[in-house]
Design a binder for these strands. Structure first.
Lengths: 129, 129
DNA sequence: GGTTAAGTCTACGTTAACGTCAACTAGGAG
DNA sequence: CTCCTAGTTGACGTTAACGTAGACTTAACC
């Protein structure tokens, strides 16, 4: 519809501060598709859709998930399921992930509080100043 | 002081559901010390202190930190610093980590909300039932 | 006293997630 | 036409975080 801007590989790389190789690697393992190749040049072109996908991947990485886990999540996210069985499977997967994430959040909060109280104890020991 | 129970390597491994090799590896790279070796047998023995250290390492891993990052944090945690300069350095490090952790928490919350709303949309599409 | 269990050390193997390099192509800029 | 830039496809290299296998020791059990 809209005049969709297409990104080159190095544009995307610069945008997210990663290497082109990384992007090609994600394609290699099926996490990104460069549907749109400049037919003559064979150069990869990325849509906004693909850019968002990449962003999701990188967020996942920042959160400590492996590329495989991220792939599962995104694939699920983009599949629309056939039949009740698969729907159930997806819901269960989502619930498992939600549980994981909640645990991760509360452990991070604990860690944060530990660091905070450590820092406080630390600031109040003025022997050296 | 107290009759401290000493753990064997496989006790610890079972306790945290990891391999003995993993524990030896952590020692190899200086993240764990088996101070106390059974002098005759040369077998590693771990104190409660070491057990807690291991627990911290595994928590760090669950949260997506690399062993190196975890090492830095724990080392800092267990160092008591010499001089004002080092104190400042440690406080700054703590603040950076706190910032990182807060970001990670809020990104996880966003991810959680996304999954939740995805799941909701999903549950309310009854076409297939 | 022979076997089994638990541990030790050395050392090579493995997987994920890229880095790096070489050889090639296609499109402008001068 | 020549050079430069940006991109392409192999293919081999690298690092973290262990796995695995072999050869040996010590304690324990029958």
């Amino acid at each position: 519809m809209s005049e969709e801007h297409l990104f080159s590989i190095s544009e995307l790389a610069a945008m997210f501060d990663i290497s082109s190789r990384t992007i090609r690697y994600y394609e290699e393992i099926g996490m990104l598709s460069s549907e749109t190749r400049e037919s003559l040049t064979k150069q990869r072109k990325y849509t906004n859709q693909e850019r968002r996908r990449l962003k999701m991947i990188l967020r996942g990485k920042k959160l400590g998930f492996s590329l495989q886990e991220i792939k599962e999540m995104i694939d699920l996210y983009e599949t629309n399921p056939e039949g009740v069985e698969e729907k159930k499977r997806i819901i269960e997967y989502a619930d498992r992930k939600l549980h994981e994430i909640n645990e991760q959040i509360s452990e991070l909060q604990i860690l944060r509080d530990e660091i905070l109280s450590y820092k406080e104890r630390y600031l109040h020991s003025k022997e050296l100043e």
